[in-house]
Amino acid sequence: MSQQTQQAPFPGVFYRRPSPEAEAFVSPGDSVQAGDTIGLLEVMKQFCELKAEVTGQIASIEVDDGDVLEAGQDILVIDVSEGEA
């Protein structure tokens, strides 16, 4: 099984959930389809949905809710599904 690390496409503030009270979009162990929302990145008061780049299972999440990310910083690692690898 291969792993894919997904990175921030631009700098911004990372959010794991759609609103402060809501459930996290994804947690370690969750299955995701490519295109599923995995988090939000706020840049200049606009919110951009981050989409899973591959189908698989979330292996780890490298950043916390509300963290300030640099462009290219690792966000999470996905164990890529067999069919995709």
Partner: peptide, 10 residues
């Protein structure tokens, strides 16, 4: 030389 921070108004 100024680098715009991403946190505020555009």
């Amino acid at each position: 030389g100024y680098r715009m921070p991403p946190f505020y108004d555009s």
